[in-house]
Simulated scan of single mutants.
Amino acid sequence: MLINGQPGDSIAASDRGLAYGDGLYRTLQARHGQPLLWHWQWQRLAADCASLRLPCPDEALLLDEIARVAGELPRAVVKIVLTRGSGQRGYAMPADVTPTRIVSATAWAGYPAERAEQGVVVRWCATRLAIQPLLAGIKHLNRLENVFARSEWQDAAIAEGLMLDMDGTVVEGTMSNLFIVRRGELLTPPLDRCGVSGAMRACVLQLAANLGIAVREARLLSDEVLAADEAFICNSLAGIWPLRQLEQRQWQAWPLTRRLQQALAD
């Protein structure tokens, strides 16, 4: 683990990331120190920094630190955490900001291959996402909604939970973004009111455009997800997982999803 470029495992108790969740993070795969999907990861990190008025680290610096922490691992999970650093007591942003930058890596544990091949079982979560356009899309450090939602089940057969907002529209999974297919068109919920705009989501949107697949953002109700011809979830570690079952609805074939999986593999 590197903290501001130096080996370490602790930060100041006065750090605003700890005190207020004042910061952001990205989680990504790396192979022999080379990050995957970096184009989209960097775009999202830079955009989130701008939204939070947080100084963005130099791209070359981050790539160097990723190589340092993950270079000896054939496959790794890398986490980048940026906070506003230490400050005096109180919510107001300090005038002079010295950010805290944490880059760490752990060995890849992987996911069962059958999740991508045979699809996954998902459920609805009772925990709702609050609507806050100011923070919408940002992978900020305040993730208690996701913590509570993911804690709603212990059944290992259920791979993910889908979350609604306070108005009852479908937003995302606890750790993933959601897409559905309806009459050949790819739909995904907009993230203008809440939710996290994942790097894999951005990648899928680009892959779909490259393949000539009609794609757009649309507010979806739970019944529309259940009525979809196909559905899948995605994130930077898992890739693309087709939905096999949600409540009593079951899917057995995912032709468009398979095209996207193949394009991602290529």
Rank of each mutant, 00 (worst) to 15 (best):
G137E: 12
V225C: 09
E160G: 03
L82W: 08
G23M: 10
R26W: 04
A253V: 12
R123A: 15
G198W: 01
Q252L: 03
G110K: 06
A92N: 04
G5H: 13
L260A: 08
A157F: 02
G8E: 07
G87H: 08
L45N: 03
L52S: 12
N235C: 04
W241T: 08
Y25P: 04
P55W: 04
R249K: 14
V121S: 13
C125L: 10
V120W: 13
G212W: 04
A30G: 07
L260N: 04
L28T: 00
E152K: 05
P99D: 00
V121F: 08
F148Q: 12
W153R: 08
P7K: 04
N4H: 10
G90L: 01
I80S: 02
Q206W: 02
R193T: 11
A107H: 11
S176R: 06
E217W: 02
L62F: 09
P94N: 12
Q41I: 05
N142E: 13
A50F: 01
A105P: 05
G21H: 07
A76N: 00
D165S: 02
S176G: 03
N210S: 15
Y91L: 13
S176M: 02
Y111F: 15
G119D: 09
R216Y: 00
R123N: 07
E114R: 11
W251S: 13
R249S: 12
G85F: 07
V225N: 10
A12E: 12
Q29M: 14
S104D: 09
E172Y: 09
L191E: 07
T83W: 01
L141I: 06
I102F: 00
D22K: 02
D22T: 00
P242T: 03
G137T: 14
T188D: 01
V170G: 08
R219Q: 14
S176I: 01
N4A: 08
S151N: 15
Q43A: 12
L207T: 11
Q245C: 05
A202K: 09
G23D: 10
A218L: 09
P55N: 05
W251H: 10
Q154G: 15
W241D: 11
P74M: 04
V204G: 00
L191K: 08
T127E: 11
R101C: 12
D58S: 14
P55G: 06
R31F: 06
A30I: 10
S104F: 01
N235Q: 06
S176W: 05
R115K: 13
I158D: 04
W38C: 02
G90F: 01
T127N: 00
R31E: 14
D58E: 14
G90H: 05
T127R: 07
V69R: 13
P74F: 09
L243A: 06
E224G: 03
L178H: 06
D223L: 07
R84C: 07
L61R: 15
G198V: 03
Q43V: 02
A116R: 15
T127Q: 14
V147F: 12
C234D: 10
R216W: 00
S104P: 05
A238D: 04
S222Y: 00
A60D: 09
R216D: 03
P190I: 05
R182E: 08
A70K: 03
D58P: 09
